[in-house]
Nucleic acid binder design. Structure first.
Lengths: 347, 347
DNA sequence: GCCACTTCGTAAATCGTTTTACCACGGGTG
DNA sequence: CACCCGTGGTAAAACGATTTACGAAGTGGC
């Protein structure tokens, strides 16, 4: 009783659908799908006519519909504290390129290093049913979020929250970073070394402090530790350094253990009228092309962004492939480059 | 004859659906939808029970399904040449924050400043049915892409391809930028001013050159133009400057009209052993926090990233709202800051 | 008491794919 | 010739939401 036909659906002005293609090629939508996806064999004649029809109509598969049916979106959510920080934009750049070659797209979200914002942004990405999440977390205690670990899609914690119990993590060896920079300064004869950091709230920052302390202790300088906690801005770090310098015994070297700390320390040195590296030595944390034009050329710790990115990407894909596997913990060494901003102590 | 029930669908381990919520609350899915969207009135009792059920189940609306039905994705595609360039990552940062507050998400794609890659990436974003596109284009002639202008969703061309006929455009006033920097150097007494640029292939770069020429002409120096085309990397620009300095009459000032040009010029100046700003003056293009610690403090043109970003965002939303309106062309002034790297010419 | 109108709810259609279940057709085999 | 099997095709059932069409109450006016 085929009298009562399907509603007209008079091919709206919007994109052509698989049905339009099927109609034009004189086959069913199933066949069109098979041609386009290549799951099942299709006779050459039909295949050709489908392809011609698709071409003629300028057909583009609707990703929404396809995702809905297949149950995955081929989309990865990326959450970073601050995209305008070159370290994170570098990570995202690498991820984007990995994604593009693997047929994925990435949704990026900024947390502003704020746990509440981060939670909201992650929720939103989950609602969009991302296949996976790459997170440079704003906090170390990820499991504590109500209802989180359960419904979270496969996720990898990058750079932050190393060694979390329930997630895969990929991060730099921050303890070694702190150790190496400090040991270098000690070897140059420095005894009063200030470690400048942005905050003591994050594990990865505390790890750098740990490395600093380890190096001091190893050289019998444990009681010489001078921890300066600036804040999460260049200005805050500058102020902190200036204050430190107003105290009785001035440090002869500064180890700036974050990007903000690096810029803040340099600013303070300028404003105090001290000569770098003659009057003070500096070991920096940096990721920027600017560092190559800065004088003196900075002795610095640099994280291997590319390795961090590519490792976390493949760990995430593995995790998507086998959700049940035991969480992995990848640690990436850092590069330490000895250049001109740290000099032997003049006695 | 309700004997033959619907298939069981025994609530897989994955996310709960609206049907699960409906079942638990003892209402229909339509009602649940009405509660959650708030389109139609629902009695308080039902509303409450729905909300309780949704809460208990941890229900999160499936964005794919909803997009498919509603015909929009609340997703904006963002295409930039290079995300690790601070200028673009700054734009994306602002866009992301606008998006987050407006309930959108952004898909980011890098073109590598390569037209073919750009086309591919845009096609992919279109397949994902983004509601709009923010594009810092890799080319000026956007209409020439086969089959493009037709199926393209609402799009705004940002920073590049200013004044395109068929698209909205938002960009800096590059002619003014070129003019202002040059005029400043002329005012300081310089007559041999080299303009260093990365390429002559892009309109926005040619505009800066235009401003440079305008300023020269206005001061009767039209025949003193020295255009140095470096390349799209710091190194290429450095080499170009060094070559320029090996020619008979050395310039007394450089106007670096891109980010790469700025870094390249500084590197060249260092390697040539010239003193900045004593022996040579420099006007830079910059966007980085590093510039604030660089000495001498750079006299520089800076684009207003935030205005660029917020303007393009709202133009895009307008365009989505009224697709038929005439293309708009927004031009944003630049900031020119006189600081220490350009000095009066010593005669 | 009857009619019109509002309010609230439901079933089913729809969005555009993919995939399942089934069928028709030939060709080979025993 | 009967049977089986592989191939290529189709109709229809998903996927999970929104929205339409319609019906059942309740309310108020006359």
């Amino acid at each position: 009783m085929p009298r009562k036909r399907r509603g007209p659906t008079p091919s709206r002005s919007s994109s052509p659908t698989i049905r339009d293609v099927a109609r034009r090629a004189g086959v069913s939508t199933g066949t069109v799908s098979n041609v386009l996806i290549g799951e099942r064999g299709v006779r050459l004649a039909s295949r050709l006519s489908v392809m011609k029809a698709a071409e003629a109509l300028g057909y583009k598969s609707n990703h929404m519909a396809s995702s809905l049916r297949r149950g995955h979106t081929r989309t990865i959510g990326v959450v970073v504290p601050d995209l305008s920080n070159e370290f994170f934009s570098g990570l995202v750049t690498h991820w984007e390129s990995q994604a593009a070659t693997a047929g994925y797209e990435i949704l990026v979200a900024s947390s502003g290093d704020n746990p509440e914002t981060e939670t909201r942004r992650i929720q939103s990405l989950i609602a969009r049913r991302v296949d996976g999440l790459l997170i440079a977390a704003a906090r170390d205690d990820f499991g504590a979020i109500p209802g989180f670990p359960g419904v979270l899609p496969p996720a990898v914690l990058v750079d932050r929250a190393a060694g979390h119990k329930r997630f895969d993590t990929v991060s730099s060896d921050n303890v070694a970073a702190g150790y190496e920079g400090t040991a270098h300064l000690i070897k140059l004869g420095h005894r009063d070394i200030a470690l400048l950091t942005s905050a003591d709230s994050h594990l990865h920052l505390r790890d750098r402090v740990q490395g600093y302390r380890d190096a001091l202790k190893e050289h019998g300088l444990a009681d010489r530790a001078r921890l300066v906690i600036g804040g999460r801005s260049v200005e805050a770090c500058r102020v902190a350094v200036e204050q430190e310098f107003s105290r009785p015994r001035r440090p002869t070297a500064i180890f700036a253990s974050t990007f903000f700390a690096t810029l803040g320390a340099i600013k303070a040195i300028h404003s105090l009228g001290i000569a770098l590296p003659r009057d003070i030595s500096l070991v920096a944390f940096e990721h920027s092309e600017w560092a190559t034009v800065f004088q003196p050329y900075l002795t610095a710790v640099a994280q291997r962004r590319e390795e961090l990115a590519s490792n976390s990407w493949s760990v995430l894909l593995d995790r998507i492939g086998s959700p049940k596997a035991k969480p992995r913990r990848v640690k990436i060494p850092v590069n330490f480059s000895i250049r001109d901003s740290a000099r032997p102590l003049q006695s």
